[in-house]
Design a protein around this nucleic acid. Sequence first.
DNA 1: TCAAAATATGCGAATGAGTTGCATATGCAG
DNA 2: CTGCATATGCAACTCATTCGCATATTTTGA
Lengths: 120, 120
Amino acid sequence: MTTARRAILRALENSEDHPDALMLHDRAKEFDPTIAQATVYRTMRLLEQEGLVEKHDFGNGRARYEEAEKEQHDHLINLSTGEIIEFHDTNLEALKIEIAKRLGFDLKDHRLELYGVPRE
Amino acid sequence: MTTARRAILRALENSEDHPDALMLHDRAKEFDPTIAQATVYRTMRLLEQEGLVEKHDFGNGRARYEEAEKEQHDHLINLSTGEIIEFHDTNLEALKIEIAKRLGFDLKDHRLELYGVPRE
DNA sequence: TCAAAATATGCGAATGAGTTGCATATGCAG
DNA sequence: CTGCATATGCAACTCATTCGCATATTTTGA
């Protein structure tokens, strides 16, 4: 556990949004001003492999991260604002598992993103 | 309509899988041996913007494409083999729309991929 | 507590998918 | 056929992410 890693973890804890590596680098600099981007990338890869962090691709080139502790949820992206809304639906979870089973698979992972615009 | 574009369209028609730009480039070379990668990228971007092609990211860095005419479906990726299986589930479609609505949004697009291993 | 071994860091260079500038080639309208 | 608009090939460029390597920081264990 190094200064750099502590800085990244703190930056992550303080983030309510879904930051990308650049944002995390900026935020981590507050706790360790000399931290390098490469370290952020390396640490995020590590955290992802350890299952402590989830990596998402919301479609604009940069990977975005969130802590993995929370209960299972998916994302809805507001196309008007870019805002990301988390949601959970039990029926949906069950249905995903059931569909995989029907096709002859055990579901190991999944990815669901809804893209929508606010209803006027 | 140029030689290069015809070559790419034929390569696409002949593809039952979900090829990436490199694969399409290789396959298109059969019809136009001098075609450049840049042309494949440019053409795929065009086709995607026109809505004739769908672009997917199944998670290994290269975008993958399929013709867009078919009816709506999602993908299950076999983690053991990389094989991609298409499926359609009406309940799932309805549920996605309903969830978006519940959150106050009109669903414009979505992305669902299931990752699984064959049940032994 | 301290030195050696192990691991992580910062830096800049490298990678790899996708894009772009530009001079040339091709397609199409008249 | 000619002229002009558009597309192509090539090589150079982006941009996110990764890597090599020399140095710095942590950890181990005597």
